[in-house]
Simulated scan of single mutants.
Amino acid sequence: MNKKLVGSAVIGAAVLAIVAAQFWRGEDAPAAAPPPPAPTTTRGSLEVYRLADADGPGSAIEIPVPSSWAVTRDKEHASFRHGDLLLETDRVPITQEDALSGLQAVAGRQGGTVVEHAQIAERDAAEWDFTYERDGVPRRVTVVGLGAGDALVTIRFEAPAADFERDRSVLDEALKIRG
């Protein structure tokens, strides 16, 4: 079944329950529960990943993202593009002991190096660096993973290898995470 159709049906059912509760004045009126918050939203120029209550009520990871770049989304994965530059954020449901082992599991056999990264927003972090070739052009990629309970939140920056260091400030800004 189409995922958009299912999502629309869920939201429609929640709205219908709220409207019915407003007009149903009997003592047996069902309590209208608000629809659950979206796990990932963009607020201003922040990509926000809501975390499980185990991390504290209302806790989230807020990633600064470029507001003027073209954006595409698929569930909890967001891609921000500007020319040859790509910044992606994602939540990967993975059980890990720490951010390093989680990112190593994501990296698999793709190559590159995965190392510990200094904590970010008081969370364990790891960094994965690798290069690959697309259309004859070497591309450099850095992925930073943050431990987020039962998931790993990742920030991925990709650019042509020759321009990576010049444009690295995009990644540096994205790593000014709150949460």
Rank of each mutant, 00 (worst) to 15 (best):
P35T: 08
P37Y: 03
A38G: 04
A38P: 04
A38H: 13
T42A: 11
T42M: 11
R43K: 14
L46R: 11
L46K: 11
E47L: 12
V48E: 02
Y49H: 10
R50L: 10
A52V: 04
D53L: 07
D53I: 05
A54I: 14
G56V: 07
G56M: 13
P57K: 12
S59H: 14
S59F: 09
A60L: 08
A60D: 04
A60F: 04
P64Q: 12
P64K: 08
S67E: 15
S68C: 05
A70R: 14
A70H: 09
V71S: 11
T72A: 13
R73H: 02
D74M: 12
E76G: 02
R81T: 12
L85T: 07
L85Y: 06
E88N: 09
E88T: 12
T89P: 01
D90G: 01
R91I: 04
V92H: 00
T95R: 14
Q96L: 14
Q96R: 15
E97H: 08
A99W: 00
A99C: 09
A99L: 03
S101H: 15
G102A: 07
G102N: 01
A105N: 06
A107K: 00
A107P: 00
A107V: 01
G108H: 02
Q110L: 05
Q110F: 06
Q110C: 02
G111V: 13
V114R: 01
V114F: 03
V114H: 02
H117P: 01
A118W: 05
A121T: 14
D124A: 11
D124V: 07
D124H: 06
A125W: 02
W128T: 00
D129C: 03
D129T: 10
R134S: 09
D135V: 06
D135L: 06
G136C: 06
V137T: 11
P138H: 04
P138C: 06
P138V: 05
R139C: 05
R139G: 00
